[in-house]
């Protein structure tokens, strides 16, 4: 069925064959831009890091426990930044995983269509709110509230940054987990119901085990998201690179450090400037590995059912 409008258009716009070929080339060029982007990211991170690692041995960087790159005496042990990233992400995951999973269970098992159509867009809005707003929440709302209960809490601390980051990534966990749980074949649920299982029992004994790879994938992708999150930690977690897992202290994450250098007046080409590329390379590799594992798990689930 072709409508008249379509017919008319086809005769008016009559490209010649070379033009057709040109269009295809232009489209292909646009698609290959993504490959170019990846190559640029990798090569720049590698090249700049290479010049950095010519001055600082890789092992000193990876396993050093002191991070003082801007003032002499300098030291370039990245572990304090990794610890900062780890502790804030851990707190975020402790919030996001249970709440995200429970949300996914509610949406896929209990909620009526109507309620689902209200809650899902709300969660989508939640995950898209500019992170600088979340940073503001952490600094001006969560920290003061927490301080009532924990007097020794630092103004900048990993705890409130982690909590707010957790709230932000709940939808990451819930949407991927919900997809996985909704994809569990209906006959499997019905099989459980037919044996007298309640929804609760069917969920925990059948649906969750069957959707496990997707749920784990949602966790991994959430961790990756937490690792790369920047503004919340830059605003609320502080800028003290210390090797600690104490959530009440001020810490600095990998992303927070990059922001700190960017705001300062570190000259181009200096060793301090190069550190951000080395840190960025580490962050890139960590998130890349997590993303690949997560996406493979999501796909694997799709092929098993």
């Amino acid at each position: 069925m072709v409508d008249d409008k379509l017919k008319k258009n086809i005769f008016i716009v009559n490209f010649s064959r070379p033009a057709e070929r040109l269009i295809e080339w232009l489209l292909a060029l646009s698609a290959s831009l993504s490959i170019l982007t990846t190559l640029t990211i990798v090569s720049i991170l590698l090249v700049e890091s290479y010049t950095f690692f010519k001055e600082v041995p890789v092992l000193d960087f990876l396993f050093g426990t002191e991070w003082k790159p801007l003032y002499t005496p300098r030291s370039f042990g990245v572990l304090p930044l990794v610890a900062g990233t780890f502790i804030t992400s851990l707190i975020a995951c402790l919030i996001a995983m249970p709440f995200g999973l429970l949300t996914a269970i509610y949406l896929s098992q209990y909620a009526s269509k109507k309620i689902r159509s209200i809650i899902k867009p709300l969660l989508e809005i939640l995950v898209g709110i500019p992170t600088v707003v979340y940073g503001y929440f952490a600094l001006y709302f969560i920290t003061p509230i927490l301080k009532n209960f924990i007097p020794q809490l630092n103004v900048f601390n990993a705890l409130s940054a982690g909590i707010v980051m957790g709230i932000m990534i709940i939808p990451v966990v819930s949407s991927i987990s919900e997809d996985a749980m909704s994809a569990v074949p209906r006959v499997l649920r019905e099989g459980a119901y037919a044996l007298g299982a309640t929804k609760l029992e069917a969920t925990f004994k059948v649906v969750i085990p069957a959707a496990l790879s997707g749920i784990i994938a949602s966790f991994i992708l959430a961790i990756s998201r937490a690792f790369g999150e920047t503004m919340i930690v830059a605003m609320a977690a502080g800028s003290t690179p210390v090797l600690t897992l104490n959530p009440l202290q001020s810490v600095q994450t990998m992303t927070g450090y990059i922001v700190q250098v960017s705001l300062g007046d570190t000259p181009f080409g200096s060793i301090g400037y190069k550190t951000i590329f080395a840190v960025a390379l580490l962050l890139f590799l960590l998130t890349l590995i997590l993303n690949i594992i997560g996406k493979t798990l999501v796909k694997w689930r799709r092929t098993t059912y």
């Binding site: 074949p185 006959v187 499997l188 099989g191 037919a194 044996l195 007298g196 299982a197 004994k205 069957a210």
Partner: peptide
């Protein structure tokens, strides 16, 4: 449903061991 069991068109074993499946109910 405990008194009236049902077997479906397509076999629908639960993820898990044979034993877990049988003693599910």
């Amino acid at each position: 449903r405990k008194k009236i069991g049902m077997v479906f068109q397509k076999p629908n074993p639960f993820p898990g061991s044979i034993y877990d499946n049988v003693v599910f109910g």
